[in-house]
Simulated scan of single mutants.
Amino acid sequence: MMRCTRNDLALELRLAIELLIAEPSPDAYNQLSTMLFAMGKAKRFVERRSMIADFRAKAATDDGSYPLFGGAHT
């Protein structure tokens, strides 16, 4: 992630937290909840893409050391 994007997101998150602390309201809570949910979803997406890339790299160099089905031996 680019540094300016990361810093902008961090600032936006901090402001949402400060707003919730200063003026607790359902709207402030919902805004923060939505931000945290989106961040978690983005993290899971990146993790899945990384796992898929690892699988493809290992499948491309298939030497039998990366079985598709762990317990199935023939």
Rank of each mutant, 00 (worst) to 15 (best):
residue 3 R to E: 14
residue 3 R to L: 13
residue 4 C to F: 11
residue 4 C to I: 11
residue 5 T to C: 06
residue 6 R to Y: 02
residue 7 N to G: 01
residue 7 N to C: 06
residue 8 D to Q: 12
residue 8 D to V: 05
residue 8 D to Y: 09
residue 8 D to N: 07
residue 9 L to F: 03
residue 9 L to D: 00
residue 11 L to F: 01
residue 11 L to N: 06
residue 12 E to A: 11
residue 12 E to T: 03
residue 13 L to K: 04
residue 13 L to C: 03
residue 13 L to N: 00
residue 14 R to W: 05
residue 15 L to Q: 07
residue 15 L to T: 01
residue 16 A to I: 02
residue 16 A to G: 05
residue 16 A to V: 03
residue 17 I to R: 03
residue 17 I to T: 05
residue 17 I to F: 07
residue 18 E to Y: 11
residue 18 E to G: 03
residue 19 L to T: 06
residue 19 L to A: 12
residue 19 L to C: 09
residue 21 I to V: 11
residue 22 A to R: 13
residue 22 A to T: 07
residue 23 E to Y: 07
residue 24 P to W: 00
residue 25 S to C: 01
residue 26 P to I: 09
residue 26 P to D: 14
residue 27 D to H: 09
residue 27 D to N: 07
residue 28 A to R: 00
residue 28 A to H: 00
residue 29 Y to Q: 15
residue 30 N to T: 15
residue 31 Q to D: 14
residue 31 Q to G: 06
residue 32 L to D: 00
residue 33 S to Q: 13
residue 34 T to W: 08
residue 34 T to V: 11
residue 36 L to T: 06
residue 36 L to A: 07
residue 37 F to K: 15
residue 37 F to W: 15
residue 38 A to Y: 10
residue 38 A to F: 10
residue 39 M to Q: 09
residue 39 M to R: 12
residue 40 G to T: 07
residue 41 K to T: 13
residue 42 A to S: 09
residue 42 A to Y: 12
residue 43 K to R: 15
residue 43 K to G: 07
residue 44 R to N: 10
residue 45 F to D: 15
residue 46 V to I: 14
residue 47 E to P: 01
residue 48 R to A: 15
residue 48 R to G: 11
residue 48 R to C: 14
residue 48 R to H: 13
residue 48 R to M: 15
residue 49 R to W: 07
residue 50 S to I: 14
residue 52 I to C: 09
residue 53 A to T: 14
residue 53 A to S: 11
residue 55 F to W: 08
residue 56 R to I: 10
residue 56 R to C: 14
residue 57 A to I: 04
residue 57 A to Q: 12
residue 57 A to M: 08
residue 57 A to L: 10
residue 58 K to M: 09
residue 59 A to N: 11
residue 59 A to M: 12
residue 60 A to Y: 03
residue 60 A to L: 01
residue 60 A to M: 04
residue 61 T to S: 06
residue 61 T to W: 01
residue 61 T to A: 11
residue 61 T to K: 10
residue 63 D to S: 06
residue 63 D to N: 11
residue 63 D to Y: 05
residue 64 G to C: 03
residue 65 S to R: 08
residue 65 S to N: 11
residue 66 Y to P: 00
residue 67 P to Y: 01
residue 68 L to K: 12
residue 68 L to I: 09
residue 68 L to G: 14
residue 71 G to R: 04
residue 72 A to L: 15
residue 73 H to W: 13
residue 73 H to N: 13
residue 73 H to K: 12
